[in-house]
Lab assay of single mutants.
Amino acid sequence: MSGYILFSSEMRAVIKAQHPDYSFGELSRLVGTEWRNLETAKKAEYEERAAKVAEQQERERA
């Protein structure tokens, strides 16, 4: 899992709640824009969280 995927899943729900009429493409475009504009430190937080999720998933598969 990547930081972007984690961010995307969280942001998509927020944007969808604010704009229920937006298409999947419109939501994706907005999520991508939000990610590109996100501060580097915040991106790093998402990357760290994603790494922890990936480690947990790997342990569960073992």
Rank of each mutant, 00 (worst) to 15 (best):
Q56R: 11
A51V: 13
R12H: 08
E10F: 00
Q57N: 10
E55C: 13
W35M: 01
E10R: 01
E47N: 08
A54D: 06
E45H: 05
K52V: 08
A13M: 07
A54W: 10
E26P: 01
E48G: 07
A51K: 14
A41E: 07
R61A: 12
Q57P: 09
E45Y: 06
E45N: 06
E45P: 01
V53G: 08
K52F: 07
A17M: 09
L38D: 02
T33C: 07
F7Y: 07
Q57C: 10
F24T: 15
E60C: 11
L38N: 01
N37M: 10
M1N: 14
K42T: 06
P20G: 04
Q18M: 07
A17W: 04
T40I: 09
R49F: 01
E34S: 11
G3L: 00
E55G: 07
A44Q: 14
E39C: 13
E60M: 09
A51Q: 09
T40N: 13
Q56N: 13
E10N: 03
Y4I: 05
A62V: 07
Y46F: 06
K16M: 09
E47A: 07
R12A: 07
Q56M: 12
A17C: 05
R61L: 12
R36P: 00
A51Y: 06
E39S: 14
W35T: 02
E47M: 07
S28D: 13
N37V: 04
T40F: 07
E55N: 10
K42N: 03
R12G: 15
G3A: 05
H19Q: 04
V53L: 15
K16P: 00
L30R: 15
D21C: 07
A62I: 15
R12M: 13
Q56L: 10
E26Y: 04
Q56P: 08
D21S: 08
E45I: 08
L6S: 03
H19K: 08
S28M: 06
A44D: 08
K42D: 04
E34R: 13
L30N: 06
Q56V: 13
Y46T: 01
E47H: 07
Y4T: 01
W35K: 02
M11V: 07
V53H: 11
H19Y: 09
F24C: 14
E58Q: 12
E47C: 09
A50R: 00
A50Y: 03
Y22Q: 05
D21W: 04
A44M: 09
A51D: 05
A62R: 12
A44C: 10
G3V: 00
E39P: 15
G3W: 00
M11R: 15
R12Y: 14
E55A: 09
K42S: 05
H19T: 03
S9C: 07
Y22D: 04
S28E: 15
V31T: 06
E58D: 11
R36K: 10
A51R: 14
Y4N: 04
V53S: 08
T40H: 13
E48S: 09
S2W: 03
W35L: 00
L38E: 00
L30G: 06
A44H: 10
G25A: 14
I15S: 03
A41P: 05
A17Y: 04
A41Y: 08
F24Q: 15
V53F: 15
A54Y: 09
P20H: 04
G32M: 13
R49Q: 04
F24M: 14
E48R: 13
S23E: 08
Q18W: 01
A62P: 11
Y4W: 10
L30C: 15
E26H: 05
I5V: 11
G25H: 14
E34W: 06
P20L: 02
Y22E: 06
F7P: 02
K43S: 01
S28Q: 10
K42H: 05
P20T: 03
K43Y: 00
R29C: 07
E55Y: 10
R61M: 08
K43R: 13
Q18A: 10
Y22G: 06
K43F: 00
R29F: 05
E58A: 08
F7T: 01
L30T: 12
L6N: 04
A62C: 05
H19I: 01
I5K: 15
V14P: 03
A54C: 08
R49T: 02
A54R: 11
A13K: 14
I5D: 15
F24R: 13
S8H: 06
Y4H: 05
S8D: 14
R49N: 03
L6D: 03
P20D: 02
H19S: 04
M11F: 04
S23C: 05
R36S: 13
R59V: 11
W35R: 01
A17V: 05
R59L: 13
A44K: 12
V53I: 15
L6K: 04
D21F: 03
S2V: 03
W35Y: 03
S8F: 08
V14K: 15
E48T: 12
E39R: 05
Q56E: 15
E48H: 08
E39I: 03
R59Y: 10
E58V: 10
A44N: 11
A62S: 14
A50N: 02
L6C: 02
E10S: 02
S9R: 15
Y22I: 14
R49L: 04
M11E: 04
R36F: 05
R59C: 12
K42R: 07
G32C: 13
T40G: 13
S8L: 09
L38H: 01
L38Q: 01
L38I: 04
Q18H: 12
S2M: 04
S23P: 08
D21Q: 10
E10P: 01
H19V: 02
G25Q: 13
E34Q: 14
F7E: 02
R59M: 05
S9Q: 14
F7I: 00
M11N: 05
R49C: 02
A13H: 14
N37E: 10
V14M: 13
R61P: 15
F24Y: 13
N37Q: 12
A54S: 10
D21G: 12
L6P: 02
Q56Y: 10
A13V: 04
E60V: 10
S28G: 05
S28I: 05
F7N: 03
Q57T: 11
R61W: 10
A44R: 09
N37K: 13
L6I: 06
S23I: 02
E39W: 00
Y4F: 09
M1C: 06
L38M: 11
Y22T: 14
R49Y: 02
S28W: 04
E47I: 05
I5N: 14
Q57R: 11
E34T: 09
G32F: 11
N37W: 02
R49K: 09
A62W: 12
Q57V: 09
E47T: 05
R29W: 04
S8W: 02
T33S: 11
E45Q: 09
R12P: 01
R61T: 11
E58H: 07
M11H: 07
R49A: 05
F24S: 15
A62L: 11
A41G: 10
T33Y: 10
N37L: 08
A13G: 11
Q18V: 05
G3E: 00
Q18P: 01
H19C: 03
P20E: 04
Q56I: 10
Y4L: 03
A50W: 04
S2Q: 07
G32Q: 15
E10M: 02
S9I: 06
Y46G: 00
E47Y: 05
L6W: 02
E47R: 07
S2T: 09
P20Q: 05
A54I: 08
Q18G: 05
G3P: 03
R61Q: 13
K16E: 10
I15W: 08
F7A: 01
Q56A: 12
V53A: 06
A41K: 13
R59G: 13
H19R: 05
A62M: 00
Q57E: 15
I5W: 08
G3I: 00
M1A: 11
S2A: 06
R29P: 02
G3K: 00
S23H: 05
Y22F: 11
M11W: 05
E55P: 11
R29Q: 06
M1E: 06
G25P: 08
M1L: 06
R49D: 01
G32E: 15
K52W: 06
Y46K: 01
V31W: 00
E34L: 14
E48F: 09
A54K: 08
E55L: 11
A50E: 02
A51P: 02
A13N: 15
A50F: 02
V31L: 13
Y46H: 00
M1T: 08
K16G: 09
Q57D: 11
E10C: 00
S2G: 10
E58Y: 10
R12S: 14
Y22P: 04
V31D: 00
Q56H: 09
M11Y: 12
S8G: 05
A51S: 09
S23R: 04
T40M: 09
S9E: 15
R59D: 10
L30Y: 06
S2N: 15
M11C: 04
A17T: 09
R61C: 14
Q56G: 12
L6F: 03
V31N: 01
Y22M: 15
S23G: 07
